[in-house]
């Protein structure tokens, strides 16, 4: 089984994922190497706190210039970037895979720590990690279930699979809620984050979310937005994860879909979709018209097939999405997780 990738850091002893700011590995207790000291970009003092404020001159230096990049295969990649204006990256992403199981299964997570809350980056990282760990365990268990035979024989009805996936998503969000609520220290602006999570099993897609991080289906045959933002007309969030969230009154929403065409599942934070809210706009970024036209010229008869292949690496495509948001101002953190679905018969 492949190791869950939460951040680029792993414990040197047991290879468990580490969160930014961890001083000890949560699994085996091995001390983490202290990050190399970064100098204040204003006065040069080696005295930056975790948020990038200099303990000498007080001015803030940008943190986390290295974007977080995840890739499990050519078909699945994620990229999270600080953007151009924010001093911290308070988004978090995670990708899961169960490569030993057939048919292929994937899990994707994007969390956007809420800027007005305390320690939002911790909230986002913890939510992404908890959702990921919960899904890893619960879906692995269900794959090994006697039901797995049904999976493999493909005799399970799509509705049954949907309810199984949604059940796993719901439990993972409940666990993330408990974990993030636990970060609160009695402050009025308790750590809080949005979350959008998708699991893909064969052709079935299930998405769960709280807040305004989105999931899209992007395809030549028609793209759409899968989620509806939990926010009001003034862009104030109406649902989120955190100590001051009430998941009974404001529960997560779920959507299921059968993926019959080739295309992409995209999860992203508002740092991206603010600049391209319409699914067609995002599709255009992945497949610029000039590239499609050039492909079509090559072989007019097989235009659709040619436009589709050869497919670029999804890591290149996520970079293209992030570059687009940066070119538009990059005022917020930008995160995108992309999974390509290919159907031979499409």
């Amino acid at each position: 089984m492949q190791t869950l990738q939460i951040s680029s850091d792993q414990c040197s002893h047991c290879n468990s994922g580490l969160l930014a700011g961890d001083r000890f590995c949560e699994t085996c207790g091995t001390p983490c190497p202290s990050p190399s000291p970064t100098a204040c970009t204003h006065c040069g003092a080696l005295a930056l706190d975790t948020e990038g404020f200099c303990q000498q001159c007080g001015l803030r230096s940008p943190q986390g210039d290295e974007p977080l990049q995840l890739q499990l295969s050519l078909d699945c990649a994620g990229l999270s970037d600080r953007g151009l204006q924010r001093y911290l990256n308070q988004d978090a992403i995670a990708i899961l895979a169960w490569p030993d199981t057939q048919p292929e299964s994937w899990g994707l997570v994007v969390c956007d720590g809420i800027g007005s809350s305390a320690r939002a980056e911790q909230a986002a990282q913890l939510a992404a990690a908890t959702v990921g760990e919960s899904l890893q365990a619960s879906l692995q268990a269900s794959f090994q279930d006697p039901l797995q035979k049904q999976f493999q024989a493909q005799i399970m009805l799509p509705q049954t699979l949907d309810s199984l996936l949604v059940g796993c998503l719901g439990r993972s969000l409940d666990q993330a809620q408990q974990a993030v609520a636990h970060l609160a220290q009695g402050e009025a602006n308790a750590p809080a984050t949005t979350v959008v999570v998708a699991v893909i099993r064969d052709r079935q897609l299930a998405v769960g979310w709280l807040g305004d991080s989105r999931a899209y289906w992007l395809a030549a045959q028609g793209s759409c937005q899968l989620t509806q933002d939990h926010s009001d007309a003034a862009h104030r969030l109406t649902r989120w994860l955190g100590a001051d969230a009430d998941l009974h009154q404001y529960p997560p929403q779920f959507v299921c879909r059968e993926l019959l065409d080739s295309g992409y599942v995209l999860l992203c934070s508002d740092g991206l979709w603010n600049y391209a809210p319409e699914p067609e706009q995002l599709w255009q970024i992945l497949h610029p018209p000039e590239a499609a036209a050039a492909a079509a010229d090559l072989d007019a008869d097989g235009a659709r097939d040619c436009a589709w292949a050869p497919e670029p690496d999804t890591a290149i495509l996520t970079q293209r999405l992030i570059d687009f948001a940066r070119s538009q101002g990059g005022h917020d953190n930008i995160s995108a997780v992309l999974l390509r679905i290919t159907h031979q018969s499409a």
Partner: peptide
């Protein structure tokens, strides 16, 4: 009373 920064600077005052 802080040392004025440039537009766009953030300071922990």
């Amino acid at each position: 009373r802080v040392q004025p920064g440039k537009v766009g600077d953030e300071m922990l005052a």
